[in-house]
Design a protein around this nucleic acid. Sequence first.
DNA 1: GAAAGAGGTGAAAATTATTTCACATGTTCA
DNA 2: TGAACATGTGAAATAATTTTCACCTCTTTC
Lengths: 223, 223
Amino acid sequence: MQKRPAPREKKRLTPRQNDTFEFIRGYMRKHRKPPTLREIGEGLGIRSGNAVSKLVEALVRKGYLEREPNAARGLRLAGAEEDPFRLDDAPPNLLIISRTNSREPERLRERPGGYLTVDPRLLPGVRHPDRCLIARAGDDGMNGDGIHKGDLLVIEEASWKDLRNGEVAACLVGEMLYARRIFFLNDRLHLRPADRHYTEETFAPEDPGCYVVGRVLSIMRRL
Amino acid sequence: MQKRPAPREKKRLTPRQNDTFEFIRGYMRKHRKPPTLREIGEGLGIRSGNAVSKLVEALVRKGYLEREPNAARGLRLAGAEEDPFRLDDAPPNLLIISRTNSREPERLRERPGGYLTVDPRLLPGVRHPDRCLIARAGDDGMNGDGIHKGDLLVIEEASWKDLRNGEVAACLVGEMLYARRIFFLNDRLHLRPADRHYTEETFAPEDPGCYVVGRVLSIMRRL
DNA sequence: GAAAGAGGTGAAAATTATTTCACATGTTCA
DNA sequence: TGAACATGTGAAATAATTTTCACCTCTTTC
């Protein structure tokens, strides 16, 4: 079932109304915003605000324009809301964290290293995309899983308590951020690399030397 | 001679400034006109017109916006007037090609497999981002370089003649799409894998069984 | 420890825009 | 030949919007 907006027969315009409509359309193409009544008046050589208002009123009545009462530049072309190019939700722009501010995890977001737009399809199951972060992998410890040093990690912030055994986590260890598979066994956190040149490390859950930022959802890499 | 729009170094934004800029962009996409300061404030939960004004001022100072003093909705995205056809500077939405339509490379774009938004920072040096493509790696032949089967490859379309030896290329071989390092030696195309379980293959440049789609710029992977 | 910057409140002032009023002059159409 | 409509002028009232002030809290930087 398609919701077809009633065809909305557009009534015929008088020459002056057509001038007005053409001016408004031209103005919007050029300035990317609607004109004020005064600007329309100037464009058409009309000195009276009222005269312009009546012309606009006629265009609204005949189905060419829509008007938001009392709003500055409150005009819009009729049917503009059906614009197929309109994106009402832009993909989130995520903050890239740098590893220089690692000592206090609460301040992770304080020194932004820029932003990166990430398609929501790379954030599966995420409820609040804007709360995700991006960081760079600090070493090659996950080479075996195709994560290399410098890769961009898309991270959903989460406590280690919320991670399941075997998930890939982003962890701040000292000054560096690493991707590792995380396991919670015998009251200790195990960070397991996927490369035989690296060794598994374990920490007490509250060890300030190891802070689990969250789960790694996706990776991105510029070749 | 390329008409490069003046570099206009955009300075780094604070998180709050980024929120503001994203809100304004989103509003403009949605409403096709700039927001008022009050509307921005409502969107960001700021009660003071002055606070909004300062944020906008910072965005103007840092080169993201332009402002027409005293005008209602007097904002515009920086550079919008130099490129009137640019709707906004939303990141490009790239077409994902599926390997089902591989027989006729000219028709690569005919059966879209969806679109993915890709940040321009993952498209280094690309002049026409919208002409890039996305495809999935068909095998594990580049495991050694951290590209796995199923990874999303961001591809800049290019003839094999435009690729330099050693670049990572996306190639359609038969029904499958592979990432490989490409070499042109002794009048033949060499597709070199980065995994010892795979062997290098060579083709005559015009062999219809091997079509080079372009260079791989970036990869993305959902874990 | 002073200075500078980011981000904020709240209120008043200045500007810009829209709306409404009274009053015109035509044209069109039943 | 009215009634209804299209097009205007000009002024005043109202509402929306931007600008400016004074002042505040943090945090970073030198």
